[in-house]
Each structure stands twice: as C-alpha cells, then as structure tokens.
Amino acid sequence: MTTVCGQFLMTRILCFVRQGKMIAINDLCVIKNGRTICSVPELAIAPGERVAIRGPNGSGKSTLLRVLCGLEADYQGSYAVNASLRDRVYVHQSPYLFRGTVLFNASYGLRARGVNRTECERLTRHWLERLGLYSLAGSRVTHLSGGERRRVALARAMILQPRLLLLDEPLAELDEEGAAAASAAIDELHGSTILISSPTILPPGLNSREYQLEPSSHQAS
C-alpha cells in the first residue's frame, strides 16, 4: 500500500515538474536520531524564481537545501527537481575553500566542467570583479577574512550559472559593502532559480517570495 502511495506521489510530482516547475516537494521529512529536523508539507517553485527559505535556527533550512542538491539521501516523502545534479550548486552555510589561491578556487567548477582556458579566465575575472575580489585573485585563501572567504565561495558557485543555486545564509559575515556586492551579483543570474536560506529578512529585491519553515523539534512518531 505504502509503495503504491509513494509511486502515486512520485508520478504526481513528476507531472508537476513536467508542467514547468523547477522544484516540487511533497511531504518531505528528514529524521535524524528519532528527531524530525526538517519538514516541508508542500512546496512548488517555478523556474527563475528567487525564494527565501526563512525560519528560526534548527528549522531545517540547511537540511532542505542539502536534500535538494542531492547531498542528503536519507529523507522520507518525495521531491523532484527539474535540473540534473551537475546543474545544482550548493554553497555551505560555512563555505569550504580549497588550499590555494582565490583564482584557483573561483575557477574550480569551470575546470571541472572542462571549460577552455580563455573562457575560464574571462568568466573568473568577471565574477571576481563583480564580488569585489579581483585584487585578491592571486592571494592564498588562508590570508582572507571571513567575509572575503564567503564572497570567494559565492563567486565560485555563481560563475557556473547553474539552473538551481542553493545558497545557505549567503549574507552572514558580510559587511554592508560585501552584502551589496553579493546581492548585485545574485541579481545578475537571470537564468537561475535561486533558493536562499536565512533566519532574518533578506534585503529588498533579493527574493521574489518567501517560504517559512516551522521549527520541527518534535520527536518523530
């Protein structure tokens, strides 16, 4: 019976995705150590939308983004994303930078996708300039401040212009200038659907709508 219901839900979600939705979620639930850490009854997001995933600490914002990008496989319910795994990019709440220079980090995804050197240099230069990092291109990441590290991680993800960009609290640690540069860069990604998790209200214009996650601290039955 459960399998039949699951198949029915999956079919419904796939129909939904085929109807032009980028993301369709139905009764998604993540349970860790007997505790529900993320619960989304229903959510549909159209291509190109910019949605703020709001909610207090522990409401499962990061978990939701991790499930959507394929990093979290242990979930119940169903969801569908109308983009391949290579077209979904997730930026951690506390981003990890590889050893090496800002330039090396920023161009990592492009090199992984086999983009030729000239194009790689052009795109890297553009996005580093966009995020106010071009003067730091040759600097080693160990010498950067917290805000600069975050902007490098944002540049590294935005440079790929993925169909689905999942940003986990991207404006944390950024000063006013950094937040403005990041917001302007996000604004430039016209073809991407962007989900931005944040415990607070995002600056005006950054998101087209909000989805509120409820704190889900109750024990799973």
Partner: peptide, 9 residues
C-alpha cells in the same frame, strides 16, 4: 561535498 556540488568527477 564542495567538490561534488561543483561538478567534479
């Protein structure tokens, strides 16, 4: 995770 989400083989 970062390498994976950036599309590394």
């Amino acid at each position: 995770e970062t390498a994976w989400t950036l599309g590394a083989t």
